[in-house]
Simulated scan of single mutants.
Amino acid sequence: MRKLDYGLTFVFCSLLVFACSQKEVQVSEEESYFVDANEEWVIDDSEFEWEEEIGELEQSLIDAGLVNIEDVIPGIFVDLKYSTTDNFFGQDVYGDLFRCYLQPEVAEMLKVAHEKLQEAHPELTFLVYDGVRPLSVQQILWDNLDRPDSIKPLYVADPKIGGLHNYGVAVDLTLAYVETGEALDMGTAYDYFGYPAYPDREAQMLREGKITQSHIDNREILRQAMKAGGFSGIGSEWWHFNAYSRKEAAEKFGLVK
């Protein structure tokens, strides 16, 4: 019986050693999947490329020959207000359009204005609220404006005639800090219709305490930069600038539909 015990003990020990050796091999195989921290790995960037979809409206702007201003002017910010409800009409009429488009030469003029701005105020950049506005969108705004037709042109261009936004030669914008994108205080919000937003009424509004000298100074920085790029402002909206007159725009470009 003792010999049998010894035999059994030998077999048990042999099996135990075999099992342990198998376990060691298995662990070794698992460990082979761990990454060596000192080893250099090259990742193919093409695997992580992000392709943004271009909607029908945006594609129509590209087909019309307009350009994305962010491709022309690095470092500017864009917040298309008509792609939100934060506008005079309280409606999102641009849908999936979030990039701002202008006629190519107007975008180049804006680039000059931006360069002049940063020469004088390197801490500042442009924050663009609107550029080209297709006639299809203009019609929506016209139809939804709760005003008599006789006074609607005070607020929005008649789509039968078209405005400078509809030619892609007008831009709405403000100033913002380069580091944060925060807009400077101009005294009123964008799309505010009232005398405090009128450049022509600034002296009066200052006297009446509706705006401050700081607001006027900020607007003047914007005006000077835009003037350097060849733009002209209008008397009722501090944010609106035109590259051409209506006559010039009609001669040079067609209305964007």
Score class of each variant (00 low, 15 high):
Arg133Ser: 14
Phe98Pro: 00
Thr212His: 11
Val256Tyr: 07
Asn38Lys: 15
Leu127Ser: 08
Gly229Asp: 11
Lys247Thr: 03
Gly168Asn: 12
Lys116His: 05
Ala120Val: 05
Phe241His: 02
Thr85Pro: 07
Val25Tyr: 10
Ile62Leu: 15
Glu70Asn: 08
Gly55Gln: 10
Glu220Ile: 03
Ser14Phe: 14
Glu31Phe: 11
Ile234Thr: 12
Pro153Lys: 09
His215Trp: 04
Leu127Phe: 07
Trp41Glu: 06
His215Thr: 04
Ile43Ser: 12
Lys210Gly: 06
Leu222Asn: 04
Leu135Pro: 07
Ile216Pro: 00
Ala120Gly: 01
Leu184Lys: 06
Asp96Pro: 13
Ser236Met: 06
Glu119Thr: 13
Pro74Ile: 08
Ser245His: 02
Ser245Gln: 04
Thr85Trp: 02
Val11Pro: 09
Leu61Met: 14
Glu202Arg: 12
Thr85Met: 10
Val256Cys: 11
Val171Met: 03
Gln118Val: 13
Glu70Trp: 00
Glu39Phe: 12
Tyr33Ala: 07
Val93Leu: 08
Thr180Met: 06
Cys13Asn: 12
Trp50Glu: 12
Phe241Ser: 05
Glu202Pro: 04
Val25Lys: 15
Ala19Gln: 06
Val128Asp: 13
Thr85Val: 13
Glu208Ile: 09
Val27Leu: 12
Leu110Arg: 07
Ile69Arg: 02
Gly168Tyr: 02
Tyr101Met: 00
Glu208Pro: 05
Ser46Lys: 15
Glu39Gln: 14
Ala225Lys: 04
Ile211His: 07
Gly75Gln: 07
Asn242Glu: 01
Arg223Asp: 04
Ser232Gly: 12
Val256Ser: 12
Val67Asp: 02
Thr174Arg: 03
Phe241Ala: 05
Val137His: 06
Asp158Asn: 15
His165Gly: 11
Val11Leu: 15
Ala176Asp: 05
Glu49Ser: 13
Ala120Thr: 12
Arg147Ala: 07
Thr85Asn: 11
Asp86Thr: 05
Phe253Lys: 01
Val42Glu: 13
Asn166Arg: 05
Gly131Asp: 02
Leu57His: 00
Asp71Tyr: 07
Glu52Val: 12
Val11Cys: 11
Lys252Pro: 04
Tyr190Asn: 04
Lys210Thr: 02
Ile221Tyr: 03
Ser46Glu: 15
Asp36Val: 12
Cys100Pro: 02
Phe253His: 14
Asn87Ile: 05
Tyr33Val: 10
Gln213Val: 09
Ser83Phe: 01
Glu49Gly: 00
Tyr101Gly: 05
Gly168Leu: 03
Pro122Tyr: 06
Glu58Ser: 08
Leu173Gln: 09
Glu123Asp: 13
Leu102Asn: 03
Cys13Val: 15
